[in-house]
């Protein structure tokens, strides 16, 4: 009963745009893949959705996850711990992105689009998960550090665009910190280090977010 009311409360207070918007984008890419007939183009679109679009959506939505809450002050007055809030809010966004990525992979698999150039099943998951986690952590930390959701959204958006625009330079000069190495160069020998750095960096940013979220007076 208690669990049911808790779930009901979560559903009622949940920001619906972080659910419908990723689903809308998923639907859009499903339609685009269906329209495009050439296998190479279909693969490029599937790769773009998993490797670029899912991380961008996750990053910017995460910037709004904690602070964009009309009941923030009320929430801070309850004994909910910072790590609990962070896990629930950012975790939910990551979960929705993960669901979209899995559904999309099932769909492209059903169409016979081969994602194996990106690696095995686990590697394909890392292709979208690590950039999404990194941008979500950056968006959250940016929003909390600036005490403004816009700041986090800007950081996530700008890093995404800078990394895409300068991908050749980053692949040559800063491959460990390159968000899209897994999707653009899946056979790069530095991929394991890159994945380690992205994961470690994300954890560090989430730790910073946790420390910032504990200072509740900054957001009131």
């Amino acid at each position: 009963m208690k669990l049911k009311s808790s779930l009901k409360y979560s559903w009622l207070t949940y920001r619906r745009d972080s659910l419908w918007f990723p689903l809308a984008f998923l639907a859009l890419f499903v339609v685009i893949v269906l329209i495009m007939r050439h296998p190479a183009v279909r693969f490029s679109i599937a790769r773009a959705y998993l490797g670029f679009i899912v991380p961008l959506i996750g990053g910017i939505l995460a910037a709004y996850a904690v602070l964009d809450d009309p009941a923030l002050e009320l929430r801070f007055s309850t004994p909910v711990r910072a790590e609990q809030t962070l896990l629930a809010r950012v975790g939910l966004i990551l979960a929705v992105q993960a669901a979209c990525a899995f559904v999309f992979q099932l769909f492209v698999g059903a169409l016979g689009i081969d994602l194996s150039p990106l690696g095995g099943l686990l590697r394909v998951q890392l292709v979208w998960f690590l950039p999404t986690l990194s941008l979500a952590a950056l968006g959250t930390a940016g929003a909390l550090a600036g005490a403004q959701t816009t700041m986090g959204a800007f950081l996530a958006g700008a890093v995404w665009l800078v990394q895409l625009m300068m991908n050749s330079w980053l692949r040559l000069n800063a491959r460990s910190a390159f968000l899209f190495l897994g999707v653009l160069a899946p056979r790069d020998p530095g991929l394991a280090l890159n994945q380690f750095v992205l994961f470690g960096g994300s954890m560090a940013l989430l730790l910073v977010s946790w420390a910032l979220l504990r200072r509740q007076e900054r957001y009131l």
Binding site: S18, F21, I53, Y64, T149, G157
Partner: peptide, 11 residues
């Protein structure tokens, strides 16, 4: 929503 606009605009 603002967040949706920012994602759409960046893309």
């Amino acid at each position: 929503p603002l967040s949706i606009y920012q994602i759409l605009f960046t893309g």
